[in-house]
Amino acid sequence: MNYGYPIRNKGLQKKIKPGETVIHVLLFLAGFISIFTTIGIVFVLGKDAWLFFRLPEVNLWDFLTGTSWQPHINKFGILPLFTSTLLTTAIAMTIAIPLGLAAAIYLSEYASQKARKIIKPTLELLAGIPTIVYGYFALTMVTPLLRSIFGANIVEIYNTGSAGLVMGILILPLVASICEDSLSAVPRTLRDAAYGLGATKLEVAIKIVLPAALSGISAAIILGITRAIGETMIVAVAAGAGPNLTLNPFKGAETMTGHIVRISGGDLSYDSIDYNSIFAIGLFLFLITLVLNIISQRIVRKYREVYE
C-alpha cells in the first residue's frame, strides 16, 4: 500500500525530528542575539562608566549638576553638553512638528492620490539621506545664510541654531511620513460619518481624523525627539567643538553626541579619562532614548488596541 513512500509508522505518536529541533534552536538563538546586544550595551556602557565615576576626579553628583566640562582641569559636569543637546533638539522639533504634521494632513486629507503617490516616497527617500550630507548642508549653506541675515558678528561660524534648523529639516520627512501613515489608517467610514453630518473638510481633518490618529502622531513626535537627541553628524559638523553652557543659538556649543565623536575621532588610548568619559555620556544618552522609546511603544500599543 505504500507505492514508493517509505514505510509509514503504524501509530500516530509524536516522532522526534532532530532536524526540526536543531532549526528551532538555531532560530531561537538568532532572535536571542538581540538580547545580547542590549546586555552588551548596558554592560559595556555601565562598566566603563563605572570606571569613570570611580576616578577620584569624578563624582556622580558633579557629573549631573556641574556646569562646565573641562577634562584638563578635572571638571566633568554634563550640563553644557546636555543643554546644547536640548537646544538643538528643541529648535529641530519646532521646525519638524508643525511642518511635518501640516504636511501629513495635507498629504492624507487634501492631496490627490497622484500627488501623494509621488510626494510620499520622495519624502521617505529624503529621510534616508545620510545625516553627514545634512551636516554638509548646515555648514555650507544654512550657516552662511544665518550669518548674512543676522550678521556675521552675531552668528558664529559654528552654531547650534544652524545645526538645529537642519536637524529639523532632517526629521521633518520622518515625522510627516509616520503621521501620514497614521492619518490614512483612520478608517474611511469615520470620515464618511463626519461628512454625512455636514462637516467641512477641515472639520473632518482636524476634529475627527486627527484625534483618531493622535497616538500614532505622538509616537511619531517622540521618535523625532529621540532621533534629534541621538543625531550626531549634523552637530559634529556644524554646531561647534568645545562644551559651552549657553542657550544662545548663534553660539557654538558641543552636544553630547558631538563630544563623543570629537573625543573618539583621534586615536583614543584605552582607559584614559577621555575614553571612559565617552562611556558615561553614552550611558546617559542611552538611558534618555530608552525611556523615550518605551513611552512611544506604550502609546503605539494603546493605539493598536483601539482599532482591533
Binding site: 478608517p187 467610514t189 469615520l190 464618511d192 460619518a193 463626519a194 461628512y195 454625512g196 453630518l197 455636514g198 462637516a199 467641512t200 472639520e203 476634529k207 475627527i208 484625534p211 483618531a212 483601539v306
Partner: peptide
C-alpha cells in the same frame, strides 16, 4: 450644506472614537 440638510446613516455602524455624548453633540457643535 447639502449633507447638513440631508443626513446619512451607513451600512456598518461607524461611531467616532469619542464618548457617546460627544458622538451626538459633535455635529451640533460644528
Amino acid at each position: 450644506e447639502v449633507r447638513y440638510r440631508i443626513g446619512m446613516v451607513f451600512q456598518k455602524p461607524n461611531p467616532f472614537p469619542k464618548s457617546i455624548y460627544e458622538n451626538v453633540a459633535w455635529a451640533a457643535r460644528i
